[in-house]
């Protein structure tokens, strides 16, 4: 038992003595440069949001929404001058348009690239 212990101690001494402190020499940077890139928000989700936003704008213009908007703004302004209540449709169109602007500007592209 004692003989075994002596050899154990011998081995331990030799192995402990053979330990060296290896300098970093850019190793950490190499590892970090190879780490996978992950996004906080998925790219797909952002693409869908953008596509829907663009589509809604296109539909608005295609369905002559622009003309309708000008007419609505015109009606609201003129009737307001004379203190007359504008039509419900005009108010609705303006609200929808403002809502679209708010929606498009509220899309935050917060892509964290690590």
């Amino acid at each position: 038992m004692n003989k075994n212990n002596n050899f154990d101690k011998f081995l331990k001494r030799r192995f402990q003595k053979s330990v060296c402190d290896i300098k970093n020499d850019g190793f950490t940077e190499k590892v970090l440069s190879k780490l996978p890139i992950t996004n906080t928000y998925s790219i797909k989700r952002n693409l869908i949001i953008y596509a829907l936003g663009i589509l809604s704008v296109l539909i608005f213009f295609i369905s002559e929404g622009f003309n309708l908007l000008i007419y609505s703004i015109n009606e609201v302004v003129n009737k307001s001058k004379h203190l007359i209540t504008p039509s419900f449709l005009s108010i609705f169109v303006i609200i929808v348009f403002l809502g679209m602007i708010a929606y498009l500007s509220s899309i935050e592209y917060d892509r964290k690239t690590i």
Partner: peptide
């Protein structure tokens, strides 16, 4: 996903791991 934090871990343990593999 803090790479800076991971870099600290790598720096701390790189010598031991590399030494073993050598």
């Amino acid at each position: 996903n803090d790479h800076k934090a991971y870099g600290k871990l790598v720096t701390k343990y790189q010598s031991e791991v590399r030494g073993l593999l050598i």
